[in-house]
């Protein structure tokens, strides 16, 4: 042996257990979920996800604090409205973290290393998709849960009824109608409705973000592309809705236009199928509108997985 006095201590074969597909899939899922929050990577990779997660919590914490302080039940932000209200922060998280999940392996050409192992193409994509959905769900559901816990602690149901300002028959504002605060049961129902909404937000946003990021391999470009798609879709939809409502007084067009902006889309499902109040500018009426929105969500998710599958399959051959 020539130079190998130090590392020549003999090769040992591995005859231990080799776990199957479920373990590999789970390992990938955990790996991607950690990567989404920068865990297992340098400190600078953790800055954005944790900063944004903290920002997401602030309004919820403030809302609970105000509720406790003012004893005013309406001070608590509605569970189903939280994601929509915080959509800019969510969009930034989506833009900065989708490339981490979708294009890191593409950028560094490490995809073939996976597919030369017992890793299936679909498993690879599903692990990424599932991990990113989970990351977004955590981002959205933790503050919503904080709101709910705040409600459980401060008991808004025991607070005094609220005088609601309503529009009188002659157009003048009158305070009169008394709204009873939600009971704890109602809170719980709304909370679970809100969680379902969070999951749907996570699915739809992950579908859009991952596909865009998978085709913009350069990281900066990926971030910009995701932000651009979010801003352009939201802006155009808001403009169309504004024109339809004020100029044409056409609320049908305005409602259906909401399908073309991701946050409005999911809010439609929340309103029409999960019994939430409307947060987005408009929603198509009836259960039909809700089902249509849900169908669009499903198509986005299925289409996204199909596109990602083809994208990574091709990359595995490079």
């Amino acid at each position: 042996m020539t130079t190998s006095t130090i590392h020549d201590i003999g090769y040992r074969h591995y005859d231990g257990r080799r776990l199957g597909r479920a373990y590999v899939l789970r390992s990938q899922y955990v790996h991607n979920l950690r990567a989404a929050f920068g865990l297992g990577r340098p400190a600078r990779a953790k800055v954005m996800p944790f900063l944004l997660s903290a920002v997401m919590l602030l309004p919820a914490a403030a809302s609970v604090a105000i509720l406790g302080f003012t004893k005013e039940p309406n001070a608590l932000i509605r569970y189903a409205a939280y994601a929509y209200t915080m959509q800019v922060v969510v969009a930034i998280f989506l833009a900065t973290q989708a490339p981490v999940i979708a294009s890191r392996e593409l950028r560094f050409h490490s995809v073939p290393l996976y597919f030369s192992r017992p890793v299936g193409h679909l498993d690879f994509v599903l692990a990424k998709f599932g991990a990113f959905v989970t990351a977004l769900f955590i981002l959205l559901a933790v503050p919503v849960t904080l709101l709910y816990v705040g409600a459980l602690v401060t008991r808004p149901d025991k607070m005094k009824p609220v005088m609601e300002v309503v529009e009188g028959e002659n157009g003048e504002m009158v305070t009169g109608r008394v709204q009873k605060p939600d009971s704890l049961v109602e809170h719980t129902l709304h909370y679970f409705g809100g969680l379902a909404g969070c999951l749907l937000f996570a699915l739809v946003l992950a579908a859009i973000g991952l596909v865009i990021a998978a085709f913009t391999t350069r990281r900066g470009l990926g971030v910009a592309a995701v932000i651009a798609v979010y801003m352009i879709s939201s802006t155009i939809v808001v403009i169309v809705q504004g024109i339809a409502e004020t100029e044409a007084n056409n609320f049908t067009v305005s409602g259906w236009a909401g399908l073309f902006s991701p946050f409005n889309l999911v809010d439609i499902v929340q309103v029409r199928l999960l019994g939430a109040q409307l947060t987005a500018p408009a929603a198509p009426s009836g259960v039909v509108g809700g089902l249509a929105a849900l169908a669009v969500c499903a198509a986005l998710v299925a289409g996204s997985i199909a596109v990602l599958y083809r994208r990574f399959r091709k990359a595995g051959l490079s």
Partner: peptide, 25 residues
């Protein structure tokens, strides 16, 4: 043949991950 390594993780982490991708506990 080509460069296929992510630059922002250590060799240990990378190789451990790749071992798990082969089903090693």
């Amino acid at each position: 043949e080509f460069d296929c390594l992510p630059p922002d993780v250590s060799a240990t982490e990378f190789v451990v991950h790749m071992a798990r991708m082969c089903g090693l506990p």
